[in-house]
Design a binder for these strands. Sequence first.
DNA 1: TATGAATGAGGTTTCATTCAT
DNA 2: AATGAATGAAACCTCATTCAT
Lengths: 216, 216, 216, 216
Amino acid sequence: MRVKKVKTQKNNRKERIKFGDAILPPGGIRIAKALRTLLENKDFNSITTAEIAAASGMNEALIYRYFGGKRELLHCLMDEFHYRFFADIQQSIKGIKGSLNKLRKIIWEHLSIFERDQVYARILLLELGSYLGFYESSTYELFKEYTNLIKTIVEEGIEAGEIRNDIPVRSIRQIILGSIHYMALPKLIKKRAIITDELGEDICNIIFNGIAKKNC
Amino acid sequence: MRVKKVKTQKNNRKERIKFGDAILPPGGIRIAKALRTLLENKDFNSITTAEIAAASGMNEALIYRYFGGKRELLHCLMDEFHYRFFADIQQSIKGIKGSLNKLRKIIWEHLSIFERDQVYARILLLELGSYLGFYESSTYELFKEYTNLIKTIVEEGIEAGEIRNDIPVRSIRQIILGSIHYMALPKLIKKRAIITDELGEDICNIIFNGIAKKNC
Amino acid sequence: MRVKKVKTQKNNRKERIKFGDAILPPGGIRIAKALRTLLENKDFNSITTAEIAAASGMNEALIYRYFGGKRELLHCLMDEFHYRFFADIQQSIKGIKGSLNKLRKIIWEHLSIFERDQVYARILLLELGSYLGFYESSTYELFKEYTNLIKTIVEEGIEAGEIRNDIPVRSIRQIILGSIHYMALPKLIKKRAIITDELGEDICNIIFNGIAKKNC
Amino acid sequence: MRVKKVKTQKNNRKERIKFGDAILPPGGIRIAKALRTLLENKDFNSITTAEIAAASGMNEALIYRYFGGKRELLHCLMDEFHYRFFADIQQSIKGIKGSLNKLRKIIWEHLSIFERDQVYARILLLELGSYLGFYESSTYELFKEYTNLIKTIVEEGIEAGEIRNDIPVRSIRQIILGSIHYMALPKLIKKRAIITDELGEDICNIIFNGIAKKNC
DNA sequence: TATGAATGAGGTTTCATTCAT
DNA sequence: AATGAATGAAACCTCATTCAT
């Protein structure tokens, strides 16, 4: 008994699939995944639309129909990444008490996601200019949600007396992000694995306590 | 008595000019400076070789003769920047006592160079990694000299008991660099001025002492 | 009853057209014909790819897509010529008896093709050897098929006692070809019409009987 | 006692050297000889002016001062060849009686010069278009002197009853030239030695007596 | 829609040739 | 003159993108 594919309206439509915030036809998914795969071995700029088409089995022109262009395809891919990224991060800090503990968890989770997703990490860190450039992009908006989360936690920490109140929140946030990214960077460049525990510990150590030897 | 035109060696018509580590003919300098100027308003990828030629008053083919290509021209420009950058940094810490003081000075100087040279800063942070070859380039080699300097100072600091010895030097270095770059990044994206004093202070504050409120 | 659009295999949108041994899309044909037309008034080297594109109404890049370059485009044109050339020659000697009669016909036909196709004749005699890797090309291979045909006929003639057996076949063949080409050459240089009957008669007269006055 | 270099006028001038019909400064000779050497291994079109300059130790611009251009340099080289060629041919037939004997000698001498000078032979046969193209060139004029010589001998032969009078002289001349060149051509293409005796005999055999078997 | 064809644009490269000193 | 620098012009090549069916 065939039950599958209960659809409203015309049933001769191809189904659409959720991909991050976007809704794509199956061909779009195929294209996005093909790019994702290609990015494992080549950098974005040296991947051609022809290659993406070939790797996905789709027609080159569909990149334009579905995404609007090669650049936008990358954005879409990164959006989907950030969508999962942010969901993961939010999920991870649920139930954790204390701002520093939450930050520690975020740093750990952030690195851990990079550890699992080197491709995305590399794009995020190395192709920055490709999409941060026009910072009206949805990717940028999604990323801001994340940085706002950090900001909020820091503010709570200051409120709660856990975190010093003599440093602008924005600075704290940037230094946390910069530290995470620059700890991961050499690994990405050398295509080595990112070891979350190791890097995360050092980051927290420094950011929470500083590098200066204390006498107290 | 004929005095004029005392020349050493071959009278090689056109003089060569030092440009960073490179030695260029005057036309080469003109081209490099033209690109530098164009980068103030456009990103590297959307600058055409024709534009560079036009802006420099030189022939397009000379970009290839002198530099080997558009990419290498950018590298040459960045090399020259790093050459001055590193010289400035080295000069700036002369006579300073104490590793933390030296690091403070370096952080301050680094930001200050970015403040004066937004163009280079933007390329370094947003474009080089993406539009590529960076991590195999001479520019990267020059940059590593700088990161090694930081490493050495940190090691001295640990030796001298100024800096904690329970964190890998490499981690400290990466967090310093990441902090500087990520403090500057939002300014670069929004094309706002980088205020060295403000950003530098926050960086040192956090990295030297941490963000956690101390009770001692 | 739906009858329309009966198609074999994939309905591959644009039909492909046979052009000599090659199969080209219509745009390729347009390009090849444009070059052919341009060659009527200019020599190959002074025709630019831009001109070919303009004359054909096609995009310059298609010269590279379809042919691989300007040189190969010329080869393709010449291949098509030789393809027809050889077919014509073969057709022309069908039913002719006697080796000398066949050779006479071939000489006549060869000149006649040159008469009708001065453009190709000029390229074959004046340009091919110089500008291109003619002697490694497919064009040359096609040409050899023709020279082999002559060789075979000469061998038959010797066998049949029509042709002297004291001269190497290869020499006979070369002298026939050289005679045809050098009879046509002054006409090509001066852009005068080639009069087949006139030239052909002289060639046969000399090659078949020699220039020496006989007493017998 | 220094006697050499008796010169009128300023003696601080560099001496000029005869090169075919042309008079060249020593540097010009060096350049021409360098091209000649380069032509042993590469075809004219793929030899660059830079290469010629390098091989001759002269400055590139001197090719333009001395010859007017790369093409004209080739002409100059070929002129010098033809100058010697024609002198050799003229010398070789001195004292020979009978038109057919003279033609036989010319054919032999022509092949023999090709045998000794493959470089020139190759240019003459393969780069035809490079200089026959504009047949106002001095090279063409020199070559015509040679073809006129053949014409004259043929006319004498007809006059003397040695040569058939029912074939235009021009045709006889072209077929002689075509035969010589096309006998040599396969050797040049395959870079094999031209064996004068062998080829010359076949040419005379055919052109003088024809290929048809006679019954008389 | 889906697709093969076509396009426009710009980088790259190589030269013959000319210029300025 | 002689020379290194510069030039102009094309070929060559590769793409992202758009078009037409």
